[in-house]
Amino acid sequence: MKIGLTGGIATGKSTVAAMLVERGALLVDADQVAREVVMPGEPALEAVASLFGQAVIHTDGTLDRKALGGIVFNNSELLAQLESILHPAIRGRMQLRIRQYEEQHPRQLVVADIPLLYETGQEGLYDGVMVVYVPQQLQLERLMERNGLQEQEAQRRIGLQMDIEQKRSRADWVIDNSGSLETTRRQVDDFWKSKDLP
Rank of each mutant, 00 (worst) to 15 (best):
residue 41 G to V: 12
residue 32 Q to K: 15
residue 40 P to A: 13
residue 55 A to N: 03
residue 61 G to L: 09
residue 58 H to N: 15
residue 39 M to I: 00
residue 48 V to I: 15
residue 49 A to L: 04
residue 67 A to F: 01
residue 68 L to W: 02
residue 70 G to I: 02
residue 45 L to A: 11
residue 57 I to D: 10
residue 38 V to N: 04
residue 60 D to M: 07
residue 36 E to K: 12
residue 46 E to S: 14
residue 53 G to F: 06
residue 36 E to S: 09
residue 70 G to E: 14
residue 52 F to V: 09
residue 71 I to A: 05
residue 51 L to R: 11
residue 63 L to E: 05
residue 70 G to M: 06
residue 47 A to T: 02
residue 65 R to E: 12
residue 48 V to K: 06
residue 41 G to W: 12
residue 37 V to D: 04
residue 32 Q to G: 00
residue 37 V to R: 09
residue 45 L to F: 07
residue 37 V to S: 06
residue 62 T to K: 05
residue 66 K to W: 01
residue 51 L to E: 12
residue 54 Q to H: 06
residue 68 L to I: 12
residue 40 P to D: 10
residue 42 E to I: 00
residue 51 L to S: 08
residue 63 L to K: 11
residue 71 I to H: 04
residue 44 A to V: 07
residue 42 E to R: 14
residue 57 I to F: 02
residue 63 L to M: 12
residue 58 H to F: 05
residue 49 A to E: 14
residue 65 R to D: 08
residue 56 V to K: 07
residue 68 L to T: 07
residue 63 L to H: 07
residue 56 V to Q: 07
residue 69 G to H: 10
residue 54 Q to M: 10
residue 61 G to K: 05
residue 66 K to Q: 13
residue 70 G to Q: 14
residue 37 V to G: 03
residue 32 Q to R: 15
residue 33 V to F: 13
residue 70 G to C: 01
residue 54 Q to P: 03
residue 59 T to W: 00
residue 33 V to P: 00
residue 46 E to N: 13
residue 35 R to V: 10
residue 49 A to H: 10
residue 38 V to T: 14
residue 42 E to H: 10
residue 66 K to M: 01
residue 38 V to D: 06
residue 33 V to N: 03
residue 38 V to I: 14
residue 57 I to R: 02
residue 48 V to A: 03
residue 61 G to D: 02
residue 67 A to W: 02
residue 58 H to D: 12
residue 39 M to K: 15
residue 44 A to N: 12
residue 60 D to V: 05
residue 60 D to P: 00
